[in-house]
């Protein structure tokens, strides 16, 4: 049984100007202890995907459309009662957010905020609860935790606040950690430390990790599998190394061309032209076609399906479990049946 199994997840938001189909039919699998990276530009639906898993889309769980399915260890989370959902939040699935500067409540001490999570999801109270907070803060690398737990968030740097967020996430001993752009708001020097901390903690505690980022490099450092999201849909997925070695979708190639390489200094940047269209009116046909340099006439009229590639590595399946496995892509260039390009 996989840890997380998402099928046809659609989360639509009512916005001025219509219905934003921000997450629009996403499939995603994550095995116990596995790591999956979700990559895409701003507006591709990454954050909403993560929030939907916790039943926390901005307008409430009702925005998850009927027919969507999110299974956590086989338990359906779409439509589950509030009480169970609250047990799952923080207790089974914990999340850390992009903005450590604003994600902590400014008027409570960090100790109080971590302790709140401890109190919600464990039986530790009083002195034991306090000791647990100190232990958690120490575990995520906060020096002198028993003194610093009495400080307020504004007395911490961005990196330290993100460590507090991680401690808070770990308080409920979750089996799945969702990290939504955890390093985007941080200095580059801190970024590596926080990523290492997340990766190290994930391995040590055997948690599943869903890492969301706009940066392929970040994800490739940490995740076994990669899911590329565009306009609310998965356009390509597969083992990270394979996807990066031979990206099949023009959008994935575009993302790779949009970053500087340390290895090849002569290579120039090839950014993807334009930006992600409005979620209220996705383009007809393939949603990427207006920005695609390799468009063929069919792309304009019909949307390709997300199909397995024949070239999927057969030997990677058994080694790491269900987290690796088949490669899929959504592109007409790969042929009607999805055969190798």
């Amino acid at each position: 049984m996989s840890l997380l199994e998402i099928r046809n997840l659609r989360t639509h938001l009512a916005v001025p100007g219509g219905i934003a189909r921000a997450v629009d039919g996403v499939d995603l699998d994550l095995g116990e202890g596995g790591t999956v990276g979700v990559v895409g530009e701003s507006g591709s639906g990454k954050t909403l995907l993560a929030l939907s898993i916790l039943g926390l889309p901005p307008g409430g769980p009702d925005q998850i459309i009927d027919g969507s399915s999110i299974r956590y260890r086989g338990e359906e989370l779409v439509g589950v009662g509030n009480k169970r959902l609250r047990e799952i939040r923080g207790g089974e699935i914990a999340m850390i957010f992009q903005e450590p500067m604003t994600s902590l409540n400014p008027v409570f001490t960090v100790g109080d905020q971590v302790r709140e999570s401890v109190g919600l999801h464990t039986s530790l109270r009083g002195r034991a609860g306090k000791e647990e907070v100190v232990r958690l803060l120490g575990e995520v690398g906060i020096p002198d935790p028993s003194a610093r737990m009495r400080d307020y968030p504004h007395q911490f740097s961005g990196g330290m606040r993100q460590r507090v967020m991680i401690a808070m996430a770990l308080a409920g001993k979750p089996s799945l950690l969702i990290a939504d752009e955890p390093t985007t708001a941080l200095d580059v020097t801190i970024e590596a430390q926080i990523l290492d901390l997340i990766k190290e903690t994930q391995t040590r505690l055997g948690m599943g990790l869903l890492l969301i980022s706009h940066d392929l490099r970040t994800v490739s450092k940490v995740c076994e599998r990669l899911v590329v999201l565009y306009a609310g849909r998965v356009v390509e997925s597969g083992p990270t190394a394979e996807v990066l070695a031979s990206p099949k979708h023009p959008y994935t190639r575009g993302l790779m061309g949009s970053r500087l390489s340390m290895d090849d200094r002569r290579k120039s940047l090839r950014p993807i032209p334009g930006e992600v269209p409005e979620a209220t009116s996705w383009p007809r046909g393939c949603r990427f076609h207006p920005r695609c340099g390799e468009m063929i006439p069919r792309c304009r009229t019909r949307e390709p399906d997300l199909l397995p590639l024949e070239a999927a590595a057969p030997d990677s399946g058994g080694a790491v479990g269900p987290t690796t496995g088949v490669r899929k892509a959504r592109c007409w260039l790969l042929g009607e049946t999805g055969g190798g390009a």
Binding site: L51, L54, L56, R86, E87, I88, R89, G90, G91, A94, M95, F97, E99, T102, S103, L104, N105, P106, V107, F108, E116, S117, L120, H121, M165, M168, A171, G172
Partner: peptide
């Protein structure tokens, strides 16, 4: 605010999200 989302994500009941984390601010 983001910290309200954090409070919900840690599994707090809505009443405490609003009356504790919200009202104080």
């Amino acid at each position: 605010q983001d910290y309200i989302r954090t409070a919900r994500a840690k599994g707090l009941p809505e009443s405490r999200v609003i009356l504790k984390h919200g009202l104080r601010n």
